[in-house]
């Protein structure tokens, strides 16, 4: 039950949604699947005066562009993404990431755009504050931080929990962002500010319109893993998404992209780990070395009751395992050629 009133407007097109946002100002929020926004409204972490619903906007199914890129409408529901034959065939990592989100119902409701634009999370933040933690924290406009009492007022160590974002970062996706002044393009990594207070770089009247992924090169392989305590119905303990491209020799790494989720205020790249891989012959020792470096540089925030040490341990193992997956896929692909 949401215990405050708000207005509700439908937009028939994305342009109209942006225009409404511009008119309504800061107090309005876009509503797509609602699976992140509505729990936050229930907890009164978000109290928008008006919701601009995107329900009425026609959603285009994922399609291949002339250059071989795949364009995904931001309003694509995660379950549709997971089931789309084009995605299963061309971007299986994205299908796996979509399949890892929440529960079946959440995937039938939530959209890829909404998943990227979700709020950061923290145990203290994500509950009603009727009698627990009554004075608001920094993120709620107050003057304290419950989990990290010594934080400065501009620091909120809440964690961005998207499962899809790391996969799209590993895939080097680009975004189409619609604003009052028209469309702009941005790399997926530019979407995230790194601040727990305002995790996204979107302007007040901007809307994420689509996600585009360039065609996969040859000798390319992926690995994805979401660590959870239970099999489903969970935010991640950590999320690893990796992509490796091999040189024609089939042993040397040409390029590595590593993205980690559920670690910090934003999904992270692992530049040190990537540089340990790029140009190197990928043997087990090298993968372990890179995974260890990746876990160390991630410097995960303790979140959802897990200690920093355990999160680092978990990242170290699963980063290595996903790198192994990616390597074996890259080699298989080469074999198939």
């Amino acid at each position: 039950m949401i215990l405050f009133d708000f207005g509700y407007e439908r937009a028939a097109t994305a342009e109209e949604a942006v225009a409404r946002l511009a008119r309504l100002g800061d107090d309005a929020r876009l509503l797509a699947g609602g699976t992140d926004l509505l729990p936050n409204m229930r907890a009164e972490l978000a109290m928008p005066a008006t919701l601009v619903s995107l329900e009425g906007i026609a959603c285009e199914p994922p399609r291949a562009l002339a250059d071989g890129s795949i364009r995904i409408d931001a309003l694509t529901r995660l379950a549709d993404l997971e089931r789309a034959p084009l995605i299963a065939e061309r971007l299986p990592m994205l299908a796996a990431a979509a399949r890892a989100v929440g529960s079946h119902q959440i995937r039938e409701m939530g959209t890829i755009g909404g998943n990227l634009c979700q709020e950061t999370r923290c145990l203290y933040l994500n509950q009603r504050h009727d009698y627990q933690f009554a004075p608001p924290c920094f993120k709620r406009g107050g003057e304290c931080c419950y989990p990290f009492p010594r934080n400065k007022s501009d620091v909120c160590w809440s964690v961005h929990m998207s499962d899809v974002a790391p996969a799209l970062i590993a895939l080097d996706a680009s975004l189409e962002i619609l604003g009052a002044g028209g469309t702009r393009r941005a790399g997926i990594e530019d979407l995230f500010s790194g601040s727990g207070l305002r995790p996204l770089t979107l302007g007040p009247a901007e809307l994420l319109r689509s996600v585009t992924v360039a065609p996969r090169p040859a000798r390319w392989g992926w690995g994805f893993h979401k660590s959870t305590v239970r099999g489903g119905l969970e935010y991640g303990m950590s999320v690893c998404a990796v992509a490796l491209r091999l040189e024609p020799d089939g042993r040397t790494c040409a390029e590595a992209r590593i993205a980690l989720g559920a670690v910090r205020e934003r999904p992270l790249r692992s530049p040190k780990a990537e540089s340990l891989l790029a140009g190197s012959v990928l043997d087990p020792a090298r993968l372990t070395q890179a995974a260890t470096a990746g876990a160390a540089e991630a410097n995960p925030l303790p979140h959802h009751g897990f200690t920093k040490r355990h999160l680092s341990d978990n990242l170290k193992i699963y980063l290595r395992r996903t790198l192994e997956q990616a390597l074996s896929r890259a080699r298989e692909e080469e074999g198939a050629c």
């Binding site: 509700y8 509503l31 609602g34 509505l38 729990p39 529960s103 079946h104 119902q105 959440i106 409701m109």
Partner: peptide
């Protein structure tokens, strides 16, 4: 949205009706 007791089919999709606004 964490237990599924309120699941209904909305245009054929299973959704948690507690995270669905009726106006939508």
């Amino acid at each position: 949205g964490t237990c599924g007791a309120c699941t209904v089919l909305l245009d054929g999709r299973p959704v948690v009706s507690c995270l669905t606004l009726a106006v939508a």
